[in-house]
């Protein structure tokens, strides 16, 4: 187990360097620079421009800049935002809980609906439910997030007025942030209606962000279940006189979960990418929205730091997922 862990962490290092490289150079490929954008419409004199470029170190050769950046990254220094003058690390983690809260809700939504739907589709293979679900999943997977979000807003917030359009909670409520998770904080505050307000703000973003993972998980569960259901040990379980519910829910599902968990792990990256669009549309104050804003401001340190931190998160989650396999199927635990 520890050997495996070390090998996996060893793999993280080159990935980390690669991500820092991409993050560093991609943002610099965009036209414009932070100094010009700060100056705004009126512009600034060439002398002042050169002075500011020098202050932030943007006049140095690009390789030197990257080496310096990587050096401070390794020491845990993610730089300071040019716009807000706050450390990137601090900004990131101030906004991170909002994204985590939304992502967790979206994932729960996707898993809670996707796994049972996939199981039922596999058991009732070829039925109307099976065909209907697979068609719906394909549509869900193919739908552009922003379009789907706007559609839901028009119907549920605009026409039906069931849910709020944007934000995390109604402006009527104010309470200090304890955990950063609005659902928990609103409960702690004890204010009447705060939790309901926070929850109602979460509904649409959760559905929008969870749709693609839902479609992927449902399809993956179905195909994994189909494979497992034809295994010899399923026949053994049925030969014991177990109920179909137990055969499918215990004997088959446990085996089918391995590829499903892999998929869930891989969806974390998709979730973050989706969060950028979802947060922007719903004005959700998380890192997705913050990243988009930072890109518009050409806030190099914020974009770089954000990318690297997100990549780190995804790597950690995938590492955890890999270690989960052994918990589900002990055979994998022992052969590693």
């Amino acid at each position: 187990m520890f050997g495996f862990l070390f090998r996996r962490i060893g793999l993280v290092i080159p990935t980390f360097i690669g991500v820092s490289l991409v993050a560093f150079f991609l943002i610099r490929l965009l036209p414009g620079d932070p100094i010009l954008l700060m100056a705004g419409e009126r512009g600034l004199s060439p002398e002042r421009y050169a002075e500011l470029m020098g202050r932030y170190g943007f006049d140095r050769p690009i390789w030197e800049q990257y080496a310096g950046y990587l050096g401070s990254l390794i020491q845990g220094d993610f730089g300071t935002s040019i716009i807000t003058k706050k450390p990137v690390f601090e900004e990131f983690f101030a906004l991170f809980p909002a994204t985590v809260e939304l992502s967790i809700c979206a994932m729960i939504f996707a898993v809670v609906l996707g796994i049972p739907a996939g199981v039922v589709a596999a058991v009732k293979r070829g039925s109307g439910f099976d065909h209907g679900l697979m068609a719906t999943a394909l549509v869900g997977y193919s739908m552009p997030i922003f379009w789907w979000a706007l559609l839901l807003i028009i119907v549920f917030s605009g026409i039906l007025q069931w849910t709020p359009v944007s934000g995390r909670i109604s402006l009527l409520y104010f309470f200090p942030s304890v955990t950063g998770f609005m659902l928990i904080d609103s409960l702690i505050s004890g204010q009447k209606g705060a939790f309901a307000s926070a929850a109602s703000h979460l509904i649409l973003p959760t559905i929008v962000l969870g749709t693609i993972p839902l479609a992927v998980i449902a399809r993956q569960t179905r195909s994994a279940m189909l494979e497992v259901l034809s295994e010899d040990y399923i026949r053994t379980a049925r030969a014991k006189g177990l109920s179909p519910f137990r055969v499918v829910g215990v004997h088959a599902l446990r085996n089918a979960l391995i590829p499903v968990i892999t998929t869930i792990g891989l969806q974390i990256g998709v979730l973050i990418a989706g969060a950028i669009l979802t947060e922007t549309i719903f004005s959700w104050p998380g890192i997705g929205k913050w990243m988009v804003d930072s890109i518009f401001r050409r806030d190099y340190p914020a974009v770089q730091g954000g990318l690297v931190l997100i990549a780190l998160m995804v790597m950690v989650v995938n590492l955890i997922v890999d270690m989960l396999y052994g918990l589900i199927n002990p055979k994998i635990r022992h052969t590693r």
């Binding site: 040990y233 026949r235 446990r254 589900i328 199927n329 055979k331």
Partner: peptide, 16 residues
């Protein structure tokens, strides 16, 4: 009425 099968290795569930 009980039954045993041809392939004992794959007839047991690896997860339990």
């Amino acid at each position: 009425m009980a039954m045993i099968f041809q392939e004992p290795m794959s007839s047991l569930n690896p997860c339990f």
